[in-house]
Amino acid sequence: MSTVSATLKTAPAGNASALLLVLKLRTFIALIAVTLFFALMAPNFVSVANAVIISKHVAINAILAIGMTYVILTGGIDLSVGSIVGLTGMVAGGLLVHGIPLPMLGVIVYPNVIEVVLISLLVGTAIGAINGLLVTKLGVAPFIATLGTLYVARGAALLLSGGATFSNLVGRPELENQGFPVIGSGTVLGVPVSVIILIIMALVAAYVAQRTPFGRKVYAVGGNERAAALSGVRVDRVKIAVYMISGFCAAVVGLIVSSQLVASHPASGNTFELNAIAAAVLGGTSLSGGRGLIGGTIIGAFVIGVLSDGLVMMGVSEFWQMVIKGLVIIAAVVLDQLQRRLAANTRQG
């Protein structure tokens, strides 16, 4: 990198600030570049229907990445989200297929779809709260705490069915629990429900992060935890809240994934956490905390989504898809470092 910074230092100030602008917008430029590339290379890539499909695929990762961004903004990390996706999907599937048996009353209660959704969201949020408590009250490093819950939640998902899939989650008329597939395959005016959920969640998350006292506290905790605490921010509360947000987001994704497949599989969501972290980092969120935007994360998720769908449509082998995705993530981080050096140099100059 020494040669790069040497060039940057000697570059005229005008060029430097133009370069800085390009670097700042790099994720957006990357999105336009990959979209243009596939528009030229992949058959039928440019169509409204395909845009809808890509948004649907992106929604799964982007919703997880919203929660992940909040956690990373406080300087933490949440590795458990993929497992929470699997567990909440299994909770929903189990409630729809088997209900809640009450042995002392000798009856089985079948909650309706709204109740199933609420219970699943509660389970996800509760696991997030456990993560938060482990990190704050017990002082476990976020990486370790959420690695622990990653295993516990995945194991619990497998235990719920003994490893089997809950299939055919359409509900039964006599139990009044029909309608679950709407979350994954329903549309409103041609827009999939999952994409509408993403839009609402992204807008709310961006508003909360930028315009509310809570949002400012999240940035403050990630920027300088000690200074935030000294200025009266209840650091523990903020941290517990961000892990709960992340757990909630993961539960939403768990519901969408099992609704799309009309089946819940205990291994579902495996390694989703890595895609969510990649989207946040690609979107300019700093893993050391305090820096990043929800909007950037969403664009980051779209870069990954357009890339994977486009490569499938071009018929590129799975092995190359993995290599290309990895290279894009590395390039994003390298450019991030470059931007920071350049910004520092420009300020000095």
Binding site: N50, I54, H57, V312, M313, G315, S317
Partner: peptide, 23 residues
């Protein structure tokens, strides 16, 4: 089109949706 979906239901779902768009 020929794609690996790694034995996975979720992956087969998303890949099939994209393949349907292309073909």
């Amino acid at each position: 089109a020929q794609q690996s979906a790694n034995w996975s239901q979720t992956e087969a779902f998303t890949k099939m949706e994209s393949i349907l768009q292309a073909n």
